[in-house]
Nucleic acid binder design. Sequence first.
RNA 1: GUGGCGGUAGCUCAACGGUAGAGUCCUGGAUUGUGAUUCCAGUUGUUGCGGGUUCGAAUCCCGUCCGCCACCCCA
Length: 425
Amino acid sequence: MSAPLQAVRGMNDILPAEACWWLDFEAIVRGWLARHGYRNIRMPLVEPTQLFRRAVGESTDIVEKEMYSWRDELNGEDLTLRPEATASCVRAAIEHHLLHDGPKRLWYAGPMYRHERPQKGRYRQFHQYGVEALGFAGPDADAELIVMCAALWDELGLGGIRLELNTIGSSLERMRYRAALIAHLERHADQLDADAKRRMHSNPLRVLDSKNPQVQAVVQSAPPLMEYLGDASLGHFAELKRLLAAAGVGYSISPRLVRGLDYYNLTVFEWVSDRLGAQGTVCGGGRYDGLFEQLGGKPAPAAGFAMGIERLIALMQEAGREPRDAPPDAYVVHQGEGAVQAALKIARELRCAGFAVIQHCGGGSFKSQMKRADASGAKLALIVGEDELKAGEVTVKPLREARAQARVPLARLAAEFPHLCKQRT
RNA sequence: GUGGCGGUAGCUCAACGGUAGAGUCCUGGAUUGUGAUUCCAGUUGUUGCGGGUUCGAAUCCCGUCCGCCACCCCA
């Protein structure tokens, strides 16, 4: 036997026992999205590499070292497995003129790819639900997005997720601040680590969220970004805070929260849990008013967020929720001449009536078929043997309760089945 | 990319230089066609892979792969 192949590192199979959690999660999320008036959009997993270089930014971790990029030798295109999907979504909106008749509320879901070292809550293929409000300029849109997150945590039964909020102003304000920050960092260059020194010129804002204590000391004494914001930016932020307070959504202002992607401006936020180890961010987003123009489209304001499915499901499991398992209503056991045909017919009839029915396959003794019936979790075993066939009946045996089995005429089975299924003790 | 810990039956683990085991699961049986409980029987395997030390390696050493956790960053 040759060596078995394995899944690619950091890319996981989601087996049935785990997948039932995903189905529960998705059912809740989709209902929630529909009730908020968001419509689905689906973009390709592969995009031109240039899309992410321009949207996410050259000096971000994602573009610098985490993208699965390659050259398609068939035609020389440079392609990348999407590391996030806001860029794709905006690209699609521009390409198909989605905003020609007004702003749009959109959502998407699917796998994202980042080449990082895997650890708890971090995988090379991970999955997100993304929500984007395109064409909305005001802080009311920011508030809508944040408040709907809070509603979702409630629906999912999750507590202890806190909101961290910040504003990073306009690109012009950041440019002015950037100059001041670089000047400050240069004065204290001797206290910066290699990483901070490298970023000091390429992306100085990123130095702000360094966790190195010595670097943080320098950051603490740096001028705050807030002092470089104009009235418009401050007003946007103030109104957002008012709307959140009115909606009863608590938050903490986190001046060091700048987010790793270049396209953000004004509002940025993260929802964080303490129960997930080192990777506690469960959802992150913000406003990206410059992205449409940056990608060659007509300027349009926009805001959005993405949430990590693996991390949220981990929280659901940690909260002690039970996944809704849907065992079949019946398992059809059959033996003897002509029994398979009769069993198939019975199963089909019941399925047409809306019941979940498993038909035994693969032969085996009566005993082994009954074992399968029990293992399937079915409420009832339907027994089709020679006796039943002769009598035109089927034996209905409850598997989950101490109730006697009964013979039911085939003609009445479908009609009586709801009653047989529901009966307790 | 860097560091710490770990890989033994499908699963959970024991054996820690001297012939690889238990529980569970799975399969068959306990008088005609009845599951889950009970009893009996049976299969679990190149001890992740490759090399080295040794009379002898699951065990010690080196390499490699994979996993977990952390750094970094984020979902």
